[in-house]
Amino acid sequence: MADVQRIDLLDPAEVARFGGIEIVAQGVVEGFLTGIHRSPFRGFSVEFTEHRAYQPGDELRYLDWKILARADRLFVKQFEQETNLRAMILLDASRSMAWRGAPTRLTKRAYADRLAAALALILLRQRDATGLITFDEVVREVVPARVKAGQWARLVRGLVDTPDGRGTAAQAALVRLTSLLARRGLVVLVSDLLFDRELALTALRYLRHRGHHVIVLHLMDPAEAELSGPPEVRYRDPESTASVVVRPRELARAYRTTVRGEIDAWRTACRRHGIAYHHILTDMPFGMALRLLA
């Protein structure tokens, strides 16, 4: 019953009514961390400090097997977070992100803003240097990765200052991003991935090649996953002049198959190149989306 009251598990649109990005992100993170009782990114960006006696419930992977072999005693290793990890959140601010399938849902951009703010807050609390880059056709905002106080506020301001996209997310912008990420670290791409997969993968492969740990969060409105609508409708691409007249009922099955095929193709391609891929619907509670990253 207590879980139900956790803000990170509520409907994102409901949560968004609580306040601005900061309030929502803080609430989500508090609830999220309370729920898991441990660091979501354990073993990552932390450094060994000391041993302590094993207690039931500790994870076996932290057992020091050498001490167990020598002294036949159970000790677990404890780590200290370090600050030399650089995490950069790449947020797609293209026009297609400012779309929602129903008025009761958040736009993909609004969902991405809050998810990115929550993720940045978690990383900063772990004292990881966290930065933000927003882009559409061009790079819009760049907040360099820092760990100092006030960084989260700068990140949130960067999100707020980035207007809803006026163009399409382009592979050129992704290439430009790679030049901004000189030092190795964690790169989290938050996008609806409505651009050419091969060209985007080229840029992501390059990042991976440069030693970055790359996570792709594929945002999708539920209305984009399942086609529905009036008997006949002319759908127009917000990022171009292209349009097509369809009968959603006739095309629903083929569309669902195509979307699933596209998601599978992204997942397969990312796995092949050592890139973490997560598909997130914008009606998924923020806590569950963050748990995908844990």
Binding site: E224, V233, V244, L251
Partner: peptide, 28 residues
């Protein structure tokens, strides 16, 4: 008829689905 118009970002998925099922839809 002039159908209603609406924005739909994943138009590329739609076009692909239509292309794949065009023959089936015509036959149908």
């Amino acid at each position: 008829r002039v159908p209603p118009e609406a924005e739909f970002p994943p138009l590329r998925y739609l076009s692909e689905a239509e292309r794949q099922s065009a023959r089936r839809l015509k036959l149908r």
